[in-house]
Design a protein around this nucleic acid. Structure first.
Lengths: 197, 197
DNA sequence: ATGTATTGATGCACTCAATGTAGCAATGCA
DNA sequence: TGCATTGCTACATTGAGTGCATCAATACAT
């Protein structure tokens, strides 16, 4: 990596760090982008050079995760049905998400902010929606004979809906990250069992 | 209804109508709130007296729909399991949604805008998320012995995820409203069947 | 009917997120 | 060393959204 990219990466991380610190101190709404930039010794304009919107400073690393899932679906294994493939893809994404241990309470702080701030929540939901349609299309491509486009969407929506909804519920109950992860992995089976009865 | 409320309702509808017309003419982004208010012969400030944000002028009537679903769940029928109850609730909400025939292409225009404009989409997703947790909690309350909170969330998330995802997919394929409705009602069963296999 | 309290609409001033543009300076590369 | 790239900056501007004081019409009580 050249010196240029390295510097760019450093300013990006300086912005993220400053933002998280200020959000903790004064709350999300009460922190302005100008203040974040100033705390990182940068101009306001620079912030928007790195992030399309204020919310995105909190959702910095979700794009690559989606490609991981799509890739997992593309690599269709012999004898593996669509459901198993989808669950494997979701499992890979969940593992990737819980794999990166951020320093101390950063992850917790981020979770709290996502849960609390409507603007951040909205942006995350939007990203999940596009990710979901990408996964559904990948699933349809991998199993064109077994699943038409609408069915693929239904299955994908159900699986992801179960997982994310279970995650939120588990988090609300104050469960540990490990318990939350377990609940997410259990969710599709639980949901399917009840829905077919 | 008093004269006061009637007038308020009329200005509200004038705003909605003006907004939809302008959005059609010039596009969502290129229409400002000031222009909407002016077209309805009202002040900009008045717009925000009726809608918390620009997007909400397009999502004017979704709150009551949720209460419909929650009510359907509260009214627990003897011998009816949680899955059936949930599907009944969703069915009621879908029926209510497709029941109100808005004049001519208004519904279509709204669907198109929701599908196209990220800001509107984000707000809708946010509303659906809160609706979903409300439904999950109602389901948990109705069946406290069969479903713990996390399982209730998983089932609800799966069902709603399947329905909405199928709806989006069907709409993308240019299916007729009737076909879309059918796809939505089929979705949970389809998803469950594949996920349990 | 008259006085009083609500309340919907307005104007004004303001904050803040976000964008366009042009310029500067450090880096990469020939 | 010279040239192109590009990350950062300053400045100006738009548009969403809020707080506040005010006006006028409606509701309501006596």
């Amino acid at each position: 990596m050249g010196l240029r990219e390295a510097k760019k990466e450093r300013t990006r991380e300086a912005l993220i760090e400053a933002a998280l610190r200020l959000f903790e101190e004064k709350g999300y709404e009460r922190t302005t982008v100008a203040q974040i930039a100033a705390a990182a010794q940068l101009s306001t304009r620079t912030f928007f050079l790195h992030f399309p919107a204020k919310e995105d400073v909190l959702l910095a690393d979700s794009a690559p995760r989606v490609e991981l899932g799509v890739a997992a679906l593309a690599e269709r294994r012999p004898g593996e049905g669509p459901a198993r493939a989808l669950l494997r893809a979701i499992g890979a994404m969940v593992a990737d998400a819980s794999g990166k241990d951020l320093p101390s309470g950063v992850a917790a702080a981020r979770t709290r902010l996502v849960a609390t701030e409507p603007a951040v929540q909205a942006r995350l939901l939007q990203r999940m929606a596009t990710a979901q349609t990408a996964l559904a299309e990948a699933l349809h491509r991998a199993y064109p004979d077994e699943l038409d486009a609408v069915s693929a969407a239904a299955v994908t929506g159900a699986a992801i809906g179960a997982v994310s909804s279970a995650a939120v519920a588990a988090l609300r109950q104050g469960q540990t990250p490990e318990q939350v992860r377990a609940a997410m992995l259990r969710a599709p089976a639980t949901a399917a069992a009840h829905l077919t009865e």
